[in-house]
């Protein structure tokens, strides 16, 4: 039943796991854009910007993830329907579940990533930035050559944690009907009436995903800090 044959659900579950990977990764990327914008607004020293950034971060860290995902899914569909009615499209217009799900995971992840990036930026030695200015780099060049590589290096452990969170949060997208791992396990459980076997298989696949990607982040951290190790060791 869980095999790969004609009647097996093996392939469907693997496809679900890949969809989980894809939607979590998209969510993490959306979160990294939002997170770096918030970190920037907090670091800029602008009062209004910092207040907005703070409000965003504390709001999305204080709300249940499931509620945020429902809100993004229903909310964006209602918005799209309203816009559709304005331009003459009748009836309900749904947002694709993948887009809504990735946006939901990303909006939550961004609130947490902001702190990771802010901490990483503050860990850059001020002398490095001064040196960059002294040799005449303008802001964008300095951002690309000096800030981004170092922020990423310091941010890897924090990002690794948030990746695990995004991976687990992505299971909540199953409520929108996207056939990721959780949803596939649900469908399999319903149509074969073997919920225990299917949810256990799903659990095993989630554990595999988190375990394997965790090793990947460990390797990335090792590689990114190889220069630091040489300096200290």
């Amino acid at each position: 039943m869980l095999g790969f044959g004609d009647k097996g659900w093996g392939l469907a579950l693997i496809a679900g796991a890949l969809m989980t990977l894809a939607v979590s990764l998209t969510g993490l990327l959306i979160g990294s854009v939002l997170g770096s914008l918030i970190a920037w607004s907090k670091l800029s020293g602008h009062k209004v910007g910092a207040t907005i950034g703070d409000a965003y971060a504390s709001l999305f860290r204080g709300l249940p993830e499931l509620l945020v995902i429902y809100f993004v899914y229903f909310g964006s569909s209602a918005l799209l329907t309203a816009v559709g009615n304005l331009v003459g499209i009748e009836g309900f217009v749904g947002v694709p579940a993948f887009a809504a799900g990735a946006l939901g995971v990303g909006v939550i992840s961004g609130a947490y990533q902001a702190e990771v990036y802010r901490g990483a930026y503050l860990a850059i030695a001020p002398g490095e930035l001064e040196a960059a200015r002294a040799v005449g780099m303008h802001r964008l060049l300095m951002f690309r050559r000096i800030i981004v590589p170092q922020v990423l290096r310091y941010a890897i452990p924090g990002l690794g944690n948030l990746w695990q969170v995004a991976l687990k949060d992505s299971s909540l997208i199953s409520v929108t009907g996207l056939t990721e791992l959780m949803r596939t396990a649900q469908v399999g459980a319903g149509s074969t009436r073997q919920p225990f076997a299917f949810y256990l298989a799903g659990l095993g696949l989630y554990l595999t995903l988190t375990f394997v990607t965790d090793r990947f982040f460990e390797a990335a951290e090792k590689r990114a800090t190889r220069g630091l190790k040489r300096m200290h060791g």
């Binding site: 695990q164 991976l167 687990k168 949060d169 992505s170 299971s171 909540l172 199953s174 959780m182 396990a185 649900q186 459980a189 009436r193 073997q194 919920p195 225990f196 949810y199 256990l200 799903g202 659990l203 989630y206 554990l207 988190t210 375990f211």
Partner: peptide
Amino acid sequence: IFIFRGSPLLIQLFIIYYGLPSI
């Protein structure tokens, strides 16, 4: 610790609520 931190709460909840009664 590995099992309960490495998998989503939702699937743990479903194993207990939907899965266990089927055995």
